[in-house]
Design a protein around this nucleic acid. Sequence first.
RNA 1: GCGAGGGUGGCAGAGCGGUCUAAUGCGGCGGAUUGCUAAUCCGUUUCCUGAAAGGGAACACGAGUUCAAAUCUCGUCCCUCGCGCCA
Length: 427
Amino acid sequence: MIEPKIIRENYSEVKKNLLKRQQPEIIEKLDTWVNNDKEWRKLKQEVDELRQERNKITEEIKIAKANKKDITKLLDKAKKIPQTLKEKEETTKKLEEENKNILMTIPNLLDESVPYGVGEEGNIVIRKWGDINKKDFEVKHHGQLAESLQVADFKNAVKIAGEGFYSIKGDLALLNMAIVQYAIEKLTKKGFTLVIPPYMMNRTAYEGVTDLNDFENVMYKIDKENQYLTATSEHSLTAMLMNEIIDEKELPILQVGYSMNFRKEIGKHGLDERGLFRLHQFDKVEQIVFCKPEDSAKWHEEILKNAEELVKDLEIPYRVLLICTGDIGTVASKKYDIEVWSPREEKYFETHSLSNCTTYQATRLNIKYKKQNGEKEYLHTLNATEVAIPRMLRAIIENHQTKEGTIKIPKALHPYMLGKKEIKLKK
RNA sequence: GCGAGGGUGGCAGAGCGGUCUAAUGCGGCGGAUUGCUAAUCCGUUUCCUGAAAGGGAACACGAGUUCAAAUCUCGUCCCUCGCGCCA
């Protein structure tokens, strides 16, 4: 959520910025908010004045009583106030809530460097890495190959859990753990702290970190409980600092979250998105940064570098996209995606998303930092995929499969693979 | 889950219907003093609104009683101790 103060003080700039998103309804919301806000402030004044009056009379009663004077007149006067006050308080509160909800649906202000564009096509490729030349054999579908090597069992996973669930076993499961271990080790060495969060969050905390529509579309609610399964560790790690004031000296806070993630809405279109691509449950290693506003741009580049390094180490061809105004989403002020190469489909698919959320999440969650001089300000939050495991497994299976139908393990993962360098059929 | 006790400012901790403008202590920040440090002293240290003066709110959260609630009542959440259950 954008800080109300900023909209009040720089309305025209905010409007100009939001216009870049090419969604007229956002501007409508902005204007509604501004009008409501004016009214709310007026009402607040009135309420405060009424309260002041009440406080005065209350004080008079106290004094009169102490002096043993007659207080019936004062009491009559006082008795009238609560009714009017209550009515006004209710309208004020209602308006306040309404306006907060509007504000929550207004997206973040965009960074200057975000390119103008309509939809996905407007995204800009800023870097490419790796060899994407055609292989001299037919690349097999990752899920089918894994099943034929007896390291995945989609059929039985679906049997017991339903569509959108998977099971991997043997060396592929080992590879899963190897990637996790590798990613965590890499980030830990760079100063990130490993955090394993709860996989469920209550409604209040969750409202601080997600779009309200997500409660209907994305999140699984626990029956009869006030809890939701988390869709990413970004949510839990960020929400954990809710209502906290962090000393400037403690920034930046660098965290690497590892969690199982649960998502209701996954879509699914065709063979190549079957298998390890769109899932109701998957594990992911995530980078989270809390920092001072002036440092967030630098950290954005840093976490991009971390993610790129990992993909390079796994020897997967990839490209980096700078997401345009038409495709950026609500929360981010600036966003990069990493897409990796699918030699089977001969196109890139998305594996990483890296956002600088500036003060947007911090404002909603009320996370501030205290400066040396005692002033308090909202800090900046960034989140980035380090590696979403199933998608990376798909990339590895596709890019490192051999003519003979085995899967080579990238060298970087050898130390975590119990001596195995290849996944092949057990005799 | 049951029983008992409890949740007060950054922390510790008093207050238990109107003197709460929340005591006191510690810590933080600013300043004074001082060869340096320490000690001492003064100020400041929640949020909203307002250009400011000011006003308002806040004692876990929500509702209620009252002219008036940190203080009384109810509900929810959380913590501590004991019992029960459990990987």
